[in-house]
Amino acid sequence: MPDDPSADLTVLIVSYNTRALTLKCLETLYANTRARFRTIVVDNASQDGSAEAIAARFPQVMLIASAKNLGFAAANNLAAARARSDWLLLLNPDTETYPGGVDALLAFSKANPQAGITGGRTYYPDGSLNPYSCSARLTLWSTACRASGLAAAFPRSPLFNPEAYGGWQRDSARRVDIVVGCFLMIRRSLWDQLGGFDLRYFMYGEDYDLCLRAGRLGYRPMLCPEAKIMHLVGASTTLRARRHILVAKSRVSLIHDHWHPALVPLGVALTWLWGALRTAAALSRAVLRRHPSSRESAAQWREIWRARRSWLQPY
């Protein structure tokens, strides 16, 4: 259906060299959503013809073709500034909506105004559950579990994998600390009150920071199990080492921004330990297995470890 300037929902999409994926995202969005909505796409200086293809296939979309890569946070802030609806939906370009998914999330958001921010369930292309549509906040315990490998060893344990709400299948409505920005709905008035994303977070962590700041205002983000999408995860960050570096830097930034100052050095030290143990494990596997994939992993972790001075500093 065509975009409606009087709609109460605006969908914000930020694309970066994801031409085919973004087109599929828009195709499923329009095919599977009955609510009236507008769409704003910010293309972050893609080199794959994304902006031209979007303009040709979806003329009803408000397209902002940036001359430079603004990053996820700044691009969403730019798009949100153009929205006039009561509700905003942040949607990644590497997602495909399922029938009624956006409608369910909009209805749920309106029925639970105390949430402020809402999200839904995400699935991998093979139909299996992707648990990373929401998260619990970083704590000293969760950071220690991640650093020591306990979270990876016991992924279904709520004790040892608390950030992922280990064991919960996202099949019930529930308060959560964090709604991940791949599929995040927020009332525009709250977005404006929070000032949108903190622009220090170029990529990763901006959604965590947004939700934690909303929590300080008394809102309690929630997950709606009936709202479902498919998410490829990380399609616009193809270099694995680069992604780990960005995630680690965002975690250190969140520790600095949201932890008690006395705990910050411990959190940073545990992040250092995470990098050290992962690098040592990758190098050991490369020596013992002598397999090309093990050598590739070792090379990636060497790169991550060499960049530790960068990711151990906050934004």
Rank of each mutant, 00 (worst) to 15 (best):
P5M: 06
I13W: 03
V14Q: 08
R19Y: 08
E27A: 13
L29T: 15
Y30M: 07
T33A: 01
R38K: 11
Q47L: 12
I54V: 10
A55E: 13
P59C: 06
P59W: 03
Q60W: 12
L70G: 01
F72Q: 13
A73P: 15
A73M: 12
R82P: 02
R84Q: 10
S85P: 06
L89R: 00
L90W: 05
L91P: 03
N92M: 09
N92H: 11
P93F: 01
T95G: 01
T95C: 07
E96S: 11
Y98G: 08
A104I: 00
L105N: 00
L106G: 00
F108S: 00
F108Q: 00
Q114M: 04
A115G: 13
P125F: 04
D126R: 08
P131G: 07
A136V: 06
A144P: 11
R146P: 07
A151N: 09
A153Y: 11
F154P: 12
L159H: 12
E163T: 08
Y165L: 09
W168Y: 12
Q169L: 15
S172H: 12
A173L: 10
V176I: 14
I178N: 01
L184D: 00
R187T: 14
R187F: 03
S189H: 07
S189N: 05
D192N: 12
D192R: 06
D192F: 02
G196Y: 03
D198S: 03
L199M: 14
R200C: 02
R200S: 02
R200H: 09
F202Y: 13
F202P: 02
G205M: 02
D207S: 08
D207E: 09
L210Y: 03
C211M: 05
A214H: 06
G215T: 06
G215I: 06
G215Y: 02
R220K: 14
L223K: 01
P225T: 05
T237P: 01
H244E: 14
I245M: 05
V247G: 02
K249M: 09
S250F: 04
L254S: 06
I255E: 00
L266E: 03
L266F: 14
G267C: 04
L270H: 03
L270V: 08
T279H: 11
A286S: 15
V287Y: 03
L288W: 13
R290Y: 06
R290T: 10
S297V: 07
E303S: 11
R306W: 10
A307Y: 08
R309G: 15
W311R: 05
L312F: 03
Q313S: 08
Y315Q: 14
